[in-house]
Amino acid sequence: MTPMGFVVDAIGLGFFALFGGAYGLLYAASELRGERRLGYLAIASYAAQSAVLLAVVTLSALGPIWKVFLIGSGIAYYFIPRVTLRYLKNLHASGEIHS
């Protein structure tokens, strides 16, 4: 790995996680408040995350295994907010009946 390469990679990975978090936050907020605009922003965040991922996968000197791993987490980032939110809604709905 070249000296500049690792700095760029680290910045890329930072943005990767940051956009992933922004997507989750905005997605959940748009679903709960029913605000379309937040939904678009959420999609934009995920698109940004994917773009960063693509850049890292094509340009970085990280090994292939790590790249596969990153692609895997990129996919996980997409589903985690959806699954979590749906689950939380169901959980609270059933919880309210129990208590």
Partner: peptide, 24 residues
């Protein structure tokens, strides 16, 4: 170490979703 610690942010993302849910 690289693999498992790189997974550590994922549960933290779940907590963010939970916080947004509770905020409502």
């Amino acid at each position: 170490g690289g693999f498992f610690s790189a997974l550590e942010p994922l549960p933290l993302l779940g907590m963010v979703i939970h916080a947004v849910y509770d905020a409502g």
